[in-house]
Amino acid sequence: MSRHTTTATGRPFTRAGAPSVSPQKTTRRRSFSTRRGLVIAAFMAPAAVFVAVFTYYPMLAGSQMAFRNWNLNNLTNTDWVGLGNFQKIFADPNFYVILGNSVVWVVASIIPQFIIGFALALWLRRKFVFRGLYQALIFFPWAISGFLIGILFRWMFNGEFGVINDLLSKAGLIDAPIPWLAEPGTAMTAVIIANTWYGVTFFAIMILAALQSVPDDVYEAAALDGSGKIRTLFSITIPYISTTLALTVLLRVIWIFNFPDIIWAMTGGGPANQTHIITTWMIAITQRGDYGQASALGLIVVAILLVFSAFYLMAIREKKGARS
């Protein structure tokens, strides 16, 4: 075959191998395709304009602020400072505490979310009476914003009149009430418990959908071969849905890293920065008016997440390659 046919593919109306068309037909096609172009442009334009003006423009403007001295309280001096904002951040010992907090926040929330969500999904796969109602009920927390979840848990973790202390002392687990949100050690635990509670549903939904994508005959074959339940789970079900699981975890890591709402409502980052993660810190700095430093932090977040995602996706690919 000549190069002719291969280069022309993908353009259905001008395929080189097609019989030649009369001039009359070409004009009709052209007017059809310009009308088609107009429809596409007219239907896409409002969405594109809104997203470009109110999302992309401010994000790009924010990125260049990271390299400038940009403070609402001192607008006479908005010079370019190169990496000055980044240097200031890296020189601040708080940054390393907060970076560590962010990692703890993500890892310690996602592991129990995944385990409980997986168990729920496995048990919800089997049909039972009221399964639909049950799913609807455990789905309810999702209707609530992270900020309000934070308020609910702030009240439950209240040191004096909080219900969690009351339940723990009724169960005989503690002697004296714990001032959960006022102590550095326990405050992080409290926000992570709230986040875990909120995030389990997401994993349950995603994993259940993945489980339902496994065809029944795979299980039948396994049963015929005498595979037990646990063995089937680990050598058939999990490998079958591993890609979906891995991508769900990645999406969740990115999302939790960027999720300040619960912490904002429960502790505001306190006590003594012990529950600040990068995004809550960034918002606090934005509210002080130091847009330069806040933007620099934002770029640091993007960089961390990009590098993490790249390594993570590479690791998945390698593992898949090794298996097959």
Partner: peptide
């Protein structure tokens, strides 16, 4: 995917 908070100041 991107933290929208980077846009807060410019917005």
């Amino acid at each position: 995917m991107i933290p929208a908070f980077i846009a807060l100041g410019p917005l």
